[in-house]
C-alpha cells in the first residue's frame, strides 16, 4: 500500500455519513437545541444554522464538534440589547437543559445528567446578531480577551474552506491535532493548512502533509493567519502565540521523524474498521492478559 492509499484509508475510516449513528445523534441534538432556543425566544426570528465542520465537510469520526449559529436579525433586541446580553441570555436558556461552558464566542454544551455529568456533546452554540438585513456579516460577543465584539461572516468562512480544494489535508491535520493533543483552534489550523498548501493543491496527499509539517517545523516563527471574513478587524495573532508555535513545530518535527524512521502508520495508526461486538471481544482479550492492572478507586 502506498502512503497516499494509506492516508485515503485513514480518511475513509474517519468519514461520517449522513446515516451514521453519530450524525443522527447530532441531528437530534441540533433539533433539541433549536427547539429550546425557539421556544425560549418566541418573539425573535432567529437564524439557526449548522456552521463548523458539519457545514465545511471536514468532520472526522474520532473527534467532531457540531457548531450551530443562532443569530438575531439586525436591530432585533428581543433576546438582548447588547451582544453580551444576547450571549448571556442564550446561555441562560441553554442552561435549562445543558451544562453550558463559555468558550470564546461559543457556548459549549455538556451533559448535566448526574449519571453522565460533564460528558461533552461536542456542540457549540454561537449566538450573535447580523449587522444588517443582508444577513451575511454578523457581530459576536467574545467572552475572553480585551476585544468584546467580533465581526464575522459564516458564509465567507465556509466558502474559504469548502472552496480551498484542501478538504482532505484539512481533515488529516485535524486528526493529527487531536491525536497529539495540540491546543490549537480548529479554525486557525484550517487557515494554516490552506495557507501552507495553497501552491500544493495538485500534489499527492502524503506530499501535502509532509509539506505542511515541514512548514510548521521550519517556519513556525513566521507563521501567521488572517480571518478571511475580517482580515483587519479580527487579530488572530493571539490564537497563534509563540508557545503554541513551538508546540506545533515540535509535534511536526516528531511526526516527520516518525514517518522517516517507521513509516506513516505510526502517525495515524491502523485505520479502524472494528464493529462494536468485535471491539468488546478485543477489549476482553486485552483485559485477560493485562500487565499490572489496578482496581480504580475514588477518595
Amino acid at each position: 500500500m502506498t502512503a497516499n492509499e494509506y492516508l485515503y484509508d485513514v480518511l475513509a475510516s474517519q468519514a461520517l455519513t449522513d446515516d451514521s449513528d453519530e450524525i443522527k445523534a447530532l441531528q437530534k441534538h441540533r433539533a433539541d437545541v433549536e427547539k429550546l432556543l425557539r421556544d425560549e425566544f418566541k418573539d425573535s426570528a432567529l437564524t439557526i444554522r449548522y456552521a463548523g465542520s458539519k457545514a465545511k465537510g471536514t468532520m472526522n469520526r474520532e473527534s467532531y464538534d457540531l457548531d450551530i449559529i443562532s443569530y438575531s436579525a439586525s436591530g432585533d433586541t428581543t433576546i438582548g440589547e447588547t451582544l453580551q446580553d444576547i450571549y448571556d441570555n442564550t446561555k441562560k436558556a441553554l442552561a435549562k437543559k445543558y451544562l453550558v461552558e463559555q468558550k470564546g464566542s461559543a457556548l459549549r454544551l455538556k451533559s448535566c445528567d448526574p449519571e453522565n455529568l460533564g460528558v461533552d456533546f461536542h456542540i457549540d452554540v454561537v449566538p450573535g446578531r447580523f449587522t444588517d438585513d443582508t444577513k451575511t456579516d454578523a457581530y459576536l460577543y467574545q467572552s475572553t480577551g480585551d476585544k468584546k465584539r467580533l465581526k464575522t461572516n459564516l458564509d465567507v468562512h465556509l466558502e474559504h474552506v469548502r472552496e480551498s480544494g484542501l478538504i482532505d489535508p484539512i481533515r488529516l491535520a485535524k486528526l493529527w491535532k487531536v491525536r497529539n493533543g495540540l491546543p490549537i483552534r480548529t479554525f486557525v489550523l484550517e487557515l494554516i493548512v490552506i495557507k501552507t498548501l495553497k501552491d500544493k493543491k495538485e500534489t499527492g496527499i502524503s506530499e501535502q502533509m509532509e509539506h505542511f509539517w515541514k512548514e510548521l517545523r521550519d517556519n513556525s516563527a513566521n507563521l501567521s493567519v488572517e480571518d478571511p471574513a475580517n482580515p483587519s478587524g479580527n487579530d488572530l495573532s493571539k490564537e497563534l502565540d509563540d508557545n503554541l508555535k513551538a508546540q506545533l513545530a515540535s509535534a511536526a518535527r516528531r511526526t516527520l521523524k516518525q514517518i522517516d524512521e517507521s513509516g506513516w502508520e505510526v502517525v495515524y495508526g491502523e485505520p479502524e474498521k472494528k464493529e462494536k461486538a468485535e471491539k468488546v471481544q478485543f477489549l476482553r482479550q486485552a483485559a485477560s492478559v493485562a500487565v499490572a492492572p489496578a482496581r480504580p478507586w475514588l477518595p
Partner: peptide, 25 residues
C-alpha cells in the same frame, strides 16, 4: 503501560456495558 492502560481499557469495557474487568474498590 500498567495501571493507566488498565484504567482506560476498563473504561472502554464499562462504556460498552461490560463490568469492570478486575473489579473496583
Amino acid at each position: 503501560k500498567g495501571p493507566l492502560h488498565g484504567f482506560f481499557l476498563a473504561q472502554s469495557l464499562v462504556e460498552a456495558g461490560q463490568p469492570w474487568p478486575w473489579g473496583q474498590w
